[in-house]
Every structure is written in C-alpha cells, then in structure tokens.
Amino acid sequence: MRLILLTSVVLVAFASNSILNRLAVGPGHIDPYTFALIRAFAGAVFLAALVLARRRVLPLLTRSRIAGAGSLTLYLVGFSVAYVDIDAGLGALILFGGVQVTMFAGGVIEGERPPLRRWIGAALALIGLAWLGWPSGAAALPLVATAAMLAAALGWGIYSLAGRAASDPMAETGANFIWSVPLLVAVYLLFPVEMDVAGANLFGIVLAIVAGAITSGLGYALWYGVLPQLGASTAALLQLLVPVIAAVGGVLLLGEVVSWRMVGAGALTLGGIAYGLGVFQRKLRSNTS
C-alpha cells in the first residue's frame, strides 16, 4: 500500500510538471530556457538543503552523475522548449510514449523479460494515448516542439533507468540537480539561445521555482525511491498514466474541454495499464479463492 501511495504521488507530480511548464512558457510569462535554469536551480537548492539538514552527504563526484545529471539536463531543456507550442496533455503523451519505448528497450537490453501480458497492456495504453492526444482534422504536430519533447523523453527514460541503482534517492537527486545547473549554463553558452531573464514576470518565476523544488525535486527523489521496487517495464507502463492525469488537470486548471474522445481514450489507457500489471488476474484469483 505504501508503494502504491508513493507511486501515485509521483505520477501526480509528473503531470503537474506538464501543467506548470505549459502555464508558464505557453502564454509567455517566461522563456523556456530561463524556466529550465530556474527550475534546476530551485531543485538543487531545495534538495541540497534537505540532504544537509539530515546530515547526509551529496554524492557529487560519483560515476553515476554522468548519466544522471546529463540525462536530467537533456530532459529539462527539451521539456521546456516543447511546451511553448504543445498543450499539456499532448506533450505528456509524446513524452511518456517515448519514455515507454526507451525504458522497455533498456530493460530488455539489461536482461529483463516482460511477460506477454505487459507488452499487450502497454500497446493498448499507447493506442489510448494516441487517441487522446492526436490532433483531429488537418492539424499537424509542431515539428520543433515534437522533436524537443522526444529528446526529453530519451533523457527521462535514461534518467529513470539510472535511478534504479540509487542508494540514497534524495541525495542522488539533489546531486543530479546541482550538476544540471552548470550543464545548462554550458549548453546555453555553446548553443546561443534567446534567454530573456529580465522579461520573465513574477508569475513565471514562481511557477519555475515550484516546478523545480516541489514537483520536480521532491517528486524525482520519491521516484528514485520507488524505482528499485518496480522494474523497468512496470515503471514505464505506470508512467503512461501521466498523460491522462495531465489531461484531467488541463480541464480543471487550464479550461480545456471534456470530450467523449477523452473519456474513451482514458478508459482504454487505464484498462491497458491494469491488464499489463495483472490487476484483472489478481482480482479473479481473489474472487475464486
């Protein structure tokens, strides 16, 4: 029950990141690059303070920082850039669809053999997500934003795979965020982009701080805490819940409209995840025992 509760909190935090990022950069309250940098800095400061308050050590110079901080930086940049032109629900669909492929592939390469039921459930969930987020009519997905979100998906998939070996989730997450700050600065210096720190308003800055410290910092620390108990394929499948949560959040917080397609796609996605995780089999066994 504790694992279920913590995983649920993490998934809500992931969906909140999509909503906060879209709410900040979509209307232009802050540019995506400044948002990513403030988000990383806020997460680094908040988590470092918590780790040091517990008299723990931040593992800043371990080999795992290369994969952890590097993949986190790739995710942060791609995520922010994509949400300039993509709605919260659709962005989460592209992100976690890509994460699903990355983590399934990573798990298989490392020797994990997901059962057929999990492959079928993942396929059903992906079909539901495609139905939920695919533009209707002649609308086309923005090319740059889509490519940026796929890059973010690759980064987050690698970050999640690396997190399964975390011995101190909060300290490792804090170290990743600390290293991501100079990495982001280096990226911006090597590849000049239009940062407009002076043009960011207070609302955009506050959203970036909340996304960095709470829904990212604490959310990712909790994620690193539950990952060792899940396995790559299960973790990938569970993250397909995020676009559904983000779509509901879009309705409640961003004024998006509920449609029958959303209801049907959400049901198909949830059903696929439940089947892939064996929920129906366990319920059948409990009823017959």
Rank of each mutant, 00 (worst) to 15 (best):
V258Q: 12
A122S: 15
G250V: 01
A274S: 14
A151C: 15
G225C: 04
S64V: 09
G68P: 00
A208Q: 09
S80M: 11
Q229R: 07
L61K: 05
G128H: 00
P27G: 02
P135D: 09
G217I: 09
L218Y: 10
I120Y: 13
G174T: 01
A15C: 01
L11Q: 09
G107Y: 10
L222S: 14
L161G: 00
S18A: 15
G70V: 08
L284M: 04
G271R: 02
A175Y: 04
G204R: 09
F35H: 03
T288S: 15
G174W: 05
P27A: 01
S259K: 12
V101E: 06
L202I: 11
E256G: 15
L284K: 09
Y275P: 09
I94V: 15
F14C: 13
F203Q: 13
A67R: 05
L253E: 06
I19R: 08
H29P: 01
V185Y: 03
G163V: 06
G278N: 07
A165P: 00
Y83V: 01
A122L: 11
L227D: 05
V242A: 08
G111N: 09
G272M: 10
R113K: 12
Q239V: 08
N287V: 13
L189W: 13
P32D: 00
R285V: 11
P182I: 07
I4P: 00
M262G: 15
A265F: 07
